[in-house]
């Protein structure tokens, strides 16, 4: 089995970090992983995206045109990449910045107001962690507990940021749980 997740958004939204934390968590769970960035001038200010491939066998092609999942953190990303998601896949929409719906019947949509939640938690920059938690809670790619320990490790050099990100994780998870019970 193999899954591919594309994370996309503005430069500065912490897109590459979301992917890295997922890849790290999957590695710790014993999966084969590859984290593939976009690189070059588009890194600076424009759209940032990366793809995380998780599998139970060595990862073949790291070049993914049609991912199973898309985490879209802004509107241009959704418009650009939503059509590429495999049928039967899922798209997470950061509704704080994306006022439109996915116009596809063959994919699941996960709606999370990641920026709004991050503001409530105390820092808009934690929106990526909110969205990541929601995405992982919904897809079950790895246990959330593993994401938690990887976030702690990621911020080990700035421990003052850990409580904020733990709160962001919790709220992200809760956001999709609420939706399911609603």
């Amino acid at each position: 089995m193999q899954s591919e997740t594309q994370f996309a958004g503005f430069g500065g939204q912490g897109i590459l970090l979301m992917g890295k934390i997922l890849a790290h968590a999957a590695m710790e769970e014993g999966f084969e992983v590859a984290w593939v960035p976009s690189y070059g001038p588009e890194m600076r200010g424009g759209t940032a995206y990366c793809t995380v491939v998780i599998g139970d066998r060595p990862i073949g092609s790291p070049i993914i045109r049609n991912p199973k999942y898309l985490v879209a953190m802004n509107l241009p990303s959704l418009e650009k990449f939503a059509p590429t998601v495999k049928p039967g896949g899922a798209i997470l929409i950061n509704t704080s910045l994306i006022p439109v719906d996915v116009e596809r019947e063959d994919v699941t949509t996960i709606k999370v107001p990641a920026v709004d939640i991050a503001k409530e938690v105390g820092n808009v920059r934690a929106a990526n962690i909110v969205a990541l938690a929601a995405f992982v809670a919904k897809t079950g790619l790895v246990p959330l507990e593993r994401i938690r320990s990887c976030v702690e490790e990621e911020f080990s050099a700035k421990p003052q940021l850990i409580p904020l990100n733990m709160k962001a994780l919790q709220r992200g998870e809760a956001a999709v749980a609420e939706r399911e019970t609603a």
Partner: peptide
């Protein structure tokens, strides 16, 4: 190639 340098793997 550039991907070998830019990619993250275990």
């Amino acid at each position: 190639d550039g991907l070998i340098g830019q990619m993250m793997e275990p």
